[in-house]
């Protein structure tokens, strides 16, 4: 069916298409849930290990520095920045600002781009400055 893309879509439950604002909304929830489960578990494990014995800390440190744990660390870093930036965006929107279509889309895309850039920056810093 031919559709003029300049025309708004009819507001109907089954007639919609993906937009950056929807992606950011669901990313905020996915990253929040990931931080609240995986992130919280790693954080609590770390504190319990510090307060425990040399063995409990060695077990944690062994896992933390295992090469495949890097996936978890990078994932948590990205989730942290995405959740932080989309959270700040929601904060601005809570004030009633930023609902104009172009503004809304622009900042939705910005949270995704900056979350990735900040994640890369942090890991470049860790790998080339702290671990080098």
């Amino acid at each position: 069916m031919a559709r003029n893309p300049d025309r708004p879509l009819s507001p109907h439950l089954t007639v919609w298409k993906w937009g950056p604002h929807m992606l950011v909304s669901i990313l905020h929830r996915i990253t929040g849930a990931g931080l609240a489960t995986v992130g919280a578990a790693v954080f609590v494990w770390w504190l319990v290990a510090v307060a425990g014995s040399a063995e409990t800390y060695a077990t944690f440190a062994g896992w933390a520095t295992w090469k495949w744990s890097l996936i978890i660390w990078v994932g948590l870093t990205w989730a942290f920045f995405q959740h932080l930036l989309s959270g700040l965006r929601h904060f601005v929107m809570d004030s009633g600002a930023g609902f104009e279509l172009n503004t809304n889309k622009f900042w939705a895309v910005m949270t995704i781009i900056w979350a990735i850039l900040l994640t890369v920056a942090v890991w470049v810093y860790i790998v080339f400055w702290r671990l080098a």
Binding site: A41, F43, L47, V48, V50, A51
Partner: peptide, 16 residues
């Protein structure tokens, strides 16, 4: 439970 574990661990270090 998670918050409790974290708090007790910090207290153990801080006041132990």
């Amino acid at each position: 439970f998670g918050a409790g574990l974290a708090i007790v661990s910090v207290l153990k270090l801080a006041v132990g």
